[in-house]
Design a binder for these strands. Sequence first.
DNA 1: AACTGTGAAGCCATTCACAGCT
DNA 2: AGCTGTGAATGGCTTCACAGTT
Lengths: 211, 211
Amino acid sequence: MKKYSSKTISRTFIYIRMLEDLLSQETNFVSSKQLAEMVGSTDAQIRKDISSFGRVGKPKLGYNVSELKSVLEEVIYDNIVHVVLFGAGSLGTALLRYAGFHNDRIKLVAAFESDKRKVGKEVNGVKIYAIDDVGKVFPKLHAEVGVIAVSKEKSQEVADIIVDAGLNGIINFSPTTLSVPEHVLVKNIDLSIEFMSLFYDLRAHNGKQKK
Amino acid sequence: MKKYSSKTISRTFIYIRMLEDLLSQETNFVSSKQLAEMVGSTDAQIRKDISSFGRVGKPKLGYNVSELKSVLEEVIYDNIVHVVLFGAGSLGTALLRYAGFHNDRIKLVAAFESDKRKVGKEVNGVKIYAIDDVGKVFPKLHAEVGVIAVSKEKSQEVADIIVDAGLNGIINFSPTTLSVPEHVLVKNIDLSIEFMSLFYDLRAHNGKQKK
DNA sequence: AACTGTGAAGCCATTCACAGCT
DNA sequence: AGCTGTGAATGGCTTCACAGTT
């Protein structure tokens, strides 16, 4: 598998989304400049990203929308991601309901929760199991990525369970730095840091304007 | 206001969190190397970040934990962020309940929602208003940042409301690229992109290991 | 002796600018 | 004539490595 930078990959998802919009408007061709405008980037950036995947544009015409979409999709997905959720509290439940996880590339296959009252329920077609049954349920799931949506205090414990179960990708919504073996990839999404850093940028930004 | 890179700022929040942990264990000094290990970074990175805020470390001893914490906090917050939420669906409700927004630096001051059944309720001390009352309620709020947690279809409409109300920071949880005037700062948090790009990294990572 | 602070080097991503294609 | 693809230039962030400090 060829390795692209994860920045390029993140942008590629956004490009695909735009191409889908264009397709639904029956637009056949799009230029790097137009795409750039749609996603808030630059034409050079778009061309650089796309050209790293091969020669797909047509000089003078731009990119064929559906062809480009196929190329981008091929780069990114050869498979479906099987995701398991830990924690069905308010954040976990929001994730279960979140429309973004009900597409053809991501499949949320199960949720685990310690609160007995929630165990056995189903949200959006996803079953909630008791955390103690991980050993029993896991082998059937073919899961690849675990999502941690439990409290700060329990997150390391859950991370250990995920690692023991053999997964090597974690998305961590709790505000902690997890310690995991080196082969496990962790992506931290700390919502309060996102907020606070936006706020900081905002003040710096406004300060500049006043000058 | 001096401008630091937003990468440095994001890390600073994480440093503060670690320093709080150290304080609660009554540790007085910490070296860049120890901190690096705690947050999963390098000692040089830590020193570079901290030194950009001034000379605060003591050669041979390291950093005084509580002194460093004060310095970092001073850099980041002179004020409280007033946040307004749009959308009290499952994601919005999770945000209302999210512990990270109940600290002394972020204040979620109100929520707006179009579903009449939710209007008038209170979650975690935050009132839910009708979206039509924005004009009436807003002036009292002193809000600085708006959070969009509504569906893709309604997000641009809500962004327009936020901009009209005079806010110039938006955190957008919906999977769209908003169009806003140049002075408005938008931070997109697209959870499905986060997932998909983790998955991609994971596969690239595993591919490498097999060699 | 041990650790910080920092100039310099190295690395990566973005932007520029234009040759080449249709 | 217009738009892509890309080498070269730029800019920014990270790492190196060591002088300075206590």
